[in-house]
C-alpha cells in the first residue's frame, strides 16, 4: 500500500526522481558508461603503443612484412589479407547482432535465436583466427640475430626481378647448418642439478651463423633502421660480416616477450598485450552471448515481454568490434 502511494507521487515530479532526462533504462545507461571506461583503457594501451613507436620511429618493424601469412597458403606473401578477413568477420557478426536486437524489438523469438547463434559463430571464428595469428607470430619465419645492444639483424640477398635488383629475405635455416657435434641438450628440472631449468636453447649458435654467412657470399645483413625511401637499411658484404662477428649475440626465431625476430621486442610485447586483451574481450563477449542465447531459447525475455537484455549485450559486442577497428588501423595499417 505505502509503496504504491510513493510511486504515484514521484511520477511527474521533476525533482523527485520522477523524470528520466536520458530516456534510457538504468541497465543500458550503465552499459554505456562501462563502455566509456573500457574505451579509455584501450585507448591508454594504444596511446602507449604510439608512445613507443614514436620513441623508435626510425626503427619500428613494418607490419606488412610481419603479418604475411594466410592459413592453407604456405610460402605466399599476402600481407593483410587474413587480417582483412578477420575484420570482415567481426563486422559481419556485429550486423547479425544488430539484426537480433531489431528482431527483439519485434518480439520475434525465432529470428532472435538464429541471429544470436550466427553472432556466436562469428565470434568463435574471430577468436580462432586470432589464436592462429598468434601461433604464426610466435613461430616466426625467417629468423634473425640479436645484437649485444638488443637490436635485430636480419638476412637477405639481392635477386633480379624484371631486370631490377630487389632485396629478398633469406631464412636462417637456408644458409646456416647446425653442427651435430656441438649440439647441447637443454637442461631440464628432472636431470642434472635438481629443479634447475633453463629457457629454450637458440636454434643455432653464433659460430654456426657466422660460418653460414661466410660460406654464402651473396647473403647480406639488413638492420632495423628505416631509410628515406621507407625501407630497412641493407649493409654491404664487409659491413654485414663485421656487424655479425662483432655484435651478434643470439640467433632468434619467432617472437616472445623477450626477443622478437622482426625488430624491437616492444612491438611483440604490445602485440601480445593489446590483441590479447581484445581477444579476451571477444572471448567473454562470446560467453555472455551464449548465456543470453540460452535465455532467449528458454523464453525468459518472452515472459519478460522485453528483449532489452539482447540490446545490452549487443552494445558490448559492438564495442568489441569498434575496438578492433582501431587495433586494425594502428597495428596493421599505419
Amino acid at each position: 500500500m505505502s509503496t504504491t502511494v510513493v510511486n504515484a507521487e514521484a511520477e511527474g515530479k521533476t525533482w523527485g526522481g520522477g523524470n528520466q532526462p536520458l530516456k534510457a533504462s538504468y541497465g543500458k545507461m550503465m552499459m554505456w558508461f562501462f563502455i566509456v571506461s573500457d574505451a579509455l583503457t584501450f585507448s591508454g594501451f594504444l596511446a602507449a603503443y604510439g608512445f613507443s613507436r614514436f620513441k623508435f620511429i626510425d626503427s619500428w618493424p613494418i607490419a606488412d612484412e610481419v603479418f604475411t601469412h594466410v592459413p592453407f597458403l604456405h610460402g605466399q606473401e599476402l600481407p593483410m589479407i587474413y587480417v582483412a578477413f578477420m575484420t570482415f568477420i567481426l563486422i559481419m557478426s556485429s550486423v547479425t547482432m544488430v539484426l537480433a536486437v531489431d528482431a527483439g524489438h519485434h518480439m520475434n523469438k525465432a529470428k532472435v535465436t538464429i541471429y544470436m547463434f550466427l553472432t556466436i559463430i562469428g565470434g568463435l571464428i574471430f577468436v580462432g583466427s586470432q589464436a592462429w595469428e598468434w601461433g604464426t607470430f610466435i613461430k616466426g619465419d625467417f629468423g634473425a640475430v640479436q645484437t649485444k645492444g638488443g637490436n635485430i639483424l636480419q638476412f637477405g640477398h639481392y635477386v633480379d626481378v624484371d631486370g631490377e635488383k630487389e632485396f629478398e629475405r633469406v631464412a636462417l635455416r637456408d644458409f646456416v647448418v647446425s653442427d651435430p657435434h656441438a649440439d647441447r641438450t637443454q637442461q631440464e628440472r628432472k636431470n642434472g642439478l635438481w629443479f634447475v631449468s633453463e629457457g629454450t636453447l637458440p636454434p643455432y649458435t653464433m659460430e654456426e651463423v657466422v660460418h653460414g654467412l661466410e660460406t654464402h657470399e651473396n647473403v647480406l645483413v639488413r638492420t632495423q633502421i628505416i631509410n628515406d625511401e621507407g625501407h630497412k637499411t641493407v649493409l654491404s658484404r664487409e659491413e654485414s660480416l663485421r656487424q655479425i662477428k662483432e655484435y651478434g649475440k643470439l640467433a632468434v626465431e619467432g617472437a616472445n616477450l623477450h626477443v622478437n625476430e622482426y625488430g624491437s621486442p616492444l612491438f611483440a610485447d604490445f602485440f601480445f598485450f593489446i590483441t590479447g586483451f581484445h581477444g579476451f574481450h571477444v572471448f567473454s563477449g562470446v560467453v555472455i552471448n551464449i548465456i543470453i542465447f540460452f535465455n532467449v531459447i528458454l523464453g525468459t525475455y518472452e515472459r519478460r515481454k522485453s528483449y532489452e537484455m539482447v540490446e545490452k549485450v549487443g552494445l558490448y559486442w559492438h564495442f568489441v568490434d569498434l575496438v578492433w577497428v582501431f587495433v586494425f588501423t594502428f597495428f596493421y595499417l599505419v
Binding site: 536520458l22 530516456k23 534510457a24 566509456v36 556485429s94 544488430v98 552494445l315 569498434l322
Partner: peptide, 30 residues
Amino acid sequence: FIILTIVKAYYITWDFMHMRDETKGLRRAV
C-alpha cells in the same frame, strides 16, 4: 587511414549501437 577509421567508428556507434536514437544528453555524456 586514421580518418577512415574514425568514419567507421562513427557508423558503428551511431547505427549499430543506436546512438543516433538516444537523447542528446546521453550521446554527449558518452
